[in-house]
Amino acid sequence: MSDLLQRYGVFLNVENPDDDARDALRQTVRTGGAVEQMGFHDVWVAEHHNSPFAIGSALTVLLAQIAACTSTIRLGTGASLLALNDPLRVAEDIASLDLLSGGRIEFGVARGGPFPAQYRSAGIASADAARERMHEALALIRRLWTEPQTRFDGRFFHCEDVAVYPRPLQRPVPVWLASLSGDSPRIAAEHGYGLMATPSADLGQVAEQVAAERARRGAFPFAIARFFHCDDDSRRAIEHGVAAVRAYPRLMGVQFPPGRLPPMFAPDAPEAVILANAIIGDPGQCVARAKQLGERLGPHRLLLKPATHDANEARASLARFARAAGLT
């Protein structure tokens, strides 16, 4: 698979296992800057709220810091939780980021994932309501970026003759829906959005959905995040990476609806299931696994989510992969 068909990015979640928020934030920014030098194409940062462990609540602040210490890497919101935020403010923040970064923003949006505490704190009753708010907010933001003045009368958001400044440098800003469920594939097809699969999404189901979408709409932007750990010693990489994936649901406090738990997060998930849905191993194994994804999924962006809380270890792991894949 050529580089034109498969791009490599990094997916960062601001994790604070040692209760040192300042260091967790600074290490995330440092990693975001380092991966540009390694040759990665994109760096995406997740947004989370109400968690002492996942503290990436100020998404645009983090990306602004990364933008300031980079010059070429694409900067993705992975993802902006539109249901929980004021869309006018998001429109202003993302436009400012796009201008300051020289037009490098990738605007990924999501309803908020399996974290009901986020919905409750925002007064949202359910995941379905959050999804509806997300799509409505996105429609409003895209109009605010292009119309001289916007009048909008939706179910959740209302404005009359509002103008937002500044406007983004990119026309248009690339939009990604971090969801393959509900109306997201249809809405993405109607508006030309990209689709993104989360690190825990089952690869078999993802492959089927991507193939079906390509049959319906032809080529379209697609990205998939995968848990990742690369060590020179294969067995050590697997032991560490698999243990990190097993611990992730507890640390993050995920709460999937009945019947929707990803196979890799099942309490008794075999090691083989986790490895089949991740990029874990020595450098050669990781690169081979990435190429297999390319053959199975077709053109896409592969976003590596480090499966370690040690920032130095994460950067070393990413550097091993970058060298083996010929990025540096």
Rank of each mutant, 00 (worst) to 15 (best):
1 M>P: 12
2 S>V: 07
4 L>W: 03
10 V>W: 09
14 V>P: 03
15 E>T: 14
16 N>L: 07
18 D>Q: 12
19 D>G: 03
20 D>Q: 10
21 A>G: 08
23 D>C: 09
27 Q>R: 15
27 Q>P: 10
30 R>C: 04
30 R>Y: 08
35 V>Q: 13
44 W>Y: 14
46 A>Y: 07
47 E>A: 11
49 H>Y: 14
50 N>L: 03
50 N>E: 11
50 N>H: 13
51 S>R: 06
52 P>Y: 08
52 P>R: 07
54 A>R: 10
63 L>G: 07
63 L>W: 07
64 A>P: 02
66 I>H: 03
71 S>G: 15
72 T>L: 10
78 G>P: 01
80 S>G: 00
80 S>F: 05
80 S>Y: 04
81 L>T: 11
84 L>E: 09
87 P>Y: 02
89 R>T: 11
92 E>H: 10
97 L>R: 06
99 L>E: 10
105 I>T: 13
106 E>F: 04
113 G>V: 05
115 F>N: 09
118 Q>N: 08
126 S>V: 06
126 S>R: 02
128 D>Q: 10
128 D>I: 01
130 A>Q: 01
132 E>D: 08
133 R>C: 01
133 R>E: 06
134 M>Y: 00
137 A>L: 04
140 L>A: 03
147 E>N: 01
150 T>A: 05
153 D>T: 04
154 G>F: 00
156 F>A: 00
157 F>S: 01
157 F>W: 08
158 H>N: 04
161 D>Y: 00
162 V>N: 03
167 R>E: 09
167 R>F: 05
173 V>K: 02
174 P>Q: 04
177 L>A: 03
177 L>D: 04
179 S>W: 00
194 G>Q: 07
194 G>N: 08
199 P>I: 11
200 S>Y: 13
201 A>V: 02
202 D>Q: 14
209 Q>P: 00
212 A>W: 01
213 E>K: 01
215 A>I: 02
217 R>L: 00
217 R>Q: 13
227 F>H: 15
227 F>V: 04
231 D>N: 10
239 E>W: 00
240 H>M: 05
243 A>L: 00
244 A>H: 10
246 R>S: 09
247 A>H: 05
248 Y>E: 14
248 Y>L: 06
249 P>L: 04
251 L>E: 10
254 V>F: 14
254 V>E: 14
258 P>D: 12
261 L>E: 07
266 A>D: 11
268 D>H: 01
274 I>Q: 08
274 I>H: 11
276 A>P: 07
277 N>E: 12
280 I>W: 06
280 I>Q: 07
281 G>K: 07
284 G>H: 13
285 Q>K: 12
290 A>K: 11
291 K>Q: 15
296 R>L: 15
297 L>V: 09
301 R>A: 15
309 H>C: 09
310 D>V: 08
313 E>L: 14
322 A>E: 05
323 R>N: 04
324 A>W: 05
327 L>M: 06
328 T>F: 00
